[in-house]
């Protein structure tokens, strides 16, 4: 049991604080939703009604999509772009998808390589891009969920305000959808930019996300 906790500490730690934060968001969102209901002259809703409404789903999905977009873009952009001095970057001059030897694929696969690394054609292509593709699929899935749930939640509020509901296309072209989308994107892009740039000059002893404390500022692609 102790070994299981130690071997998986990173995932279990983040899974725990994720579930606690999601629960906290649901509780706070429930009270905020009912405050709006009362202010709009409607009756407060039950906990079950809130959990099965589209309000919570929209708020959750809009944050998820931006996080998965952040990782998908970071994974793909760092294939082709480098940042001198950053531990998040490959060394300057190694831009691109690299050779089969560097990537240990095909004839260069080792005895412990995944079976797909020894394959060729579409199977190798899929496995070679599976991390970025999966992040991208979850991004588009979350963005779709945000759009569908956001449309339903927006129209529920419109009816509460005695306003006409919008069609799905009108909602997608409207300010609510893009305000929710872009307010999340801008913060993710700033966070990536900050990580790539601050890690050139700053250190965190013991973290693989940082260069070793004694590494030079010009060292690129060196992790601690």
């Amino acid at each position: 049991m102790r070994r299981l906790l130690r071997d998986n500490g990173l995932v279990l730690f983040f899974a725990t604080i994720f579930l606690l934060a999601l629960l906290g968001q649901a509780v706070a969102g429930f009270h905020a939703f009912n405050d709006d209901q009362v202010a709009g002259g409607a009756a407060p809703v039950s906990w079950t009604t809130y959990l099965t409404s589209s309000d919570l789903g929209t708020d959750v999905a809009e944050n998820w999509q931006s996080e998965y977009l952040q990782f998908a873009l970071y994974i793909l952009a760092t294939v082709h772009l480098v940042q001198r001095g950053s531990p998040e970057s490959k060394p300057v001059g190694e831009e691109g998808i690299e050779s089969e030897q560097d990537q240990r694929i095909g004839a260069h696969a080792g005895h412990d390589s995944p079976a797909a690394a020894r394959a060729s054609g579409p199977r190798l292509w899929w496995y070679s891009n599976s991390l970025g593709l999966t992040m991208g699929v979850i991004f588009f899935g979350s963005w779709t969920a945000q759009a569908v749930a956001g449309h339903a939640a927006y129209n529920a509020q419109q009816l509460l305000d005695f306003q006409d509901p919008l069609g799905f296309g009108e909602y997608l072209a409207g300010p609510d959808f893009w305000d929710r989308t872009l307010q999340n994107w801008q913060s993710e892009f700033l966070a990536i930019l900050s990580m790539a740039l601050l890690s050139i000059y700053l250190r965190q002893r013991g973290s693989p996300e940082s260069k070793p404390v004694g590494a030079s500022h010009s060292a690129t692609g060196v992790e601690g």
Binding site: D7, S54, V60, A61, T144, A145, A149, A156
Partner: peptide, 30 residues
Amino acid sequence: MRTQLALFVALLTFVGVALTYVVVLGLLHR
């Protein structure tokens, strides 16, 4: 690596089920 594979599958399942739940509720409330 069986525990890691179980956690991997659990994460993808959780995200998939949660997003499906949100989409279905959104479609029902249109």
